[in-house]
Design a protein around this nucleic acid. Structure first.
Lengths: 155, 155
DNA sequence: CGGTATAAAAATAATCATTCCCAACATCTT
DNA sequence: AAGATGTTGGGAATGATTATTTTTATACCG
């Protein structure tokens, strides 16, 4: 069950956002994309999401999925994961948490290591960048890839 | 000045490496790609490196750059950074260290926050993955993008 | 040294993810 | 209802990367 933030009280906009904060309209497509994303605990790519959404909206275009994921990420409704691998992944949970990516199949899962908010302060002290955020990404072998490669010895 | 590991004593191979450890030949192209990568403290993309290398080897192909970066990364001679953004980046320094990526221009720099080796142990305890490694990626605004956007207020 | 096998390079085509563009349609504003 | 604006679908365009094919360079063996 998804609760939609009504346009009038829309969520805060990104840092570096130039245009005055625009509210985004909740179209059928947007609603269903968001619902499908929220349904899963994995972090689907745009085309995985496209396949999921198409079961309910067979005529939706892939471009629409991309466009709206981007838009919802900009508005802080979802999280765009810029992790390793070739494709971007999306996450309906927007509060800070870390991820682990399978080096075998590319799948991404949440990992519940405590978030280290101090890291940003530390980094700010030792860099000329204006530090905005951080992300920790673990790499490993997921259960199903371990199963597939029983013969291989990891160390 | 770059020291090349002679084929006979080549560097250790990756975990999950299937084929017996093959030595790689040091060709002119490889040598120059590696030299150019080691020259800079930034973390160039394949095509940035292509441009750098072309000044010394005008007839080199982009494919050669990609192929050799991949190969050298597999052999542990360099590091392939699978960070956010659209392109992969490469790093001549192979020991663990963290990075910061500019949200304006995509540039990636090293950041000298202490490496937290315990993180992997922690993650292993709270996950069904076989945890292999980790990476911390900060995001921020680099000095030159700060300069370009004096009018914007960051918070 | 010459001939053959093998590895790597160059050139080019193919693929994949993503973005862009545009005509048709929907929704807001007055 | 009319005009302005926003959104969609579909397809073309782009950009990064990978694969394929041909050519060139290096290694191996007598």
């Amino acid at each position: 069950m998804i609760i939609f933030i009504p346009p009038a009280t829309s969520t805060p906009v990104n840092i570096m956002e130039t245009k005055p904060d625009n509210m985004i309209r909740i179209t059928t497509q947007r609603q269903i994309i968001l619902e499908e994303l929220a349904k899963v605990k994995t972090h689907p790519t745009a085309s995985e999401l496209y396949d999921m959404v198409r079961k309910r909206l067979p005529r939706i275009g892939l471009g629409t999925v991309y466009r709206n994921l981007e838009l919802m990420a900009e508005n802080g409704m979802i999280l765009k994961l810029e992790v390793g691998g070739t494709q971007k992944r999306f996450d309906a949970t927007t509060d800070t948490h870390y991820h682990i990516r399978c080096s075998g199949c590319g799948r991404v899962d949440d990992i519940d290591t405590p978030v280290m908010d101090d890291l940003v302060k530390e980094a700010a002290a030792s860099s000329s960048y204006l530090v905005q955020g951080h992300h920790v990404e673990f790499t490993g072998v997921c259960p199903s890839c371990q199963e597939k490669n029983k013969d291989v010895t990891y160390q």
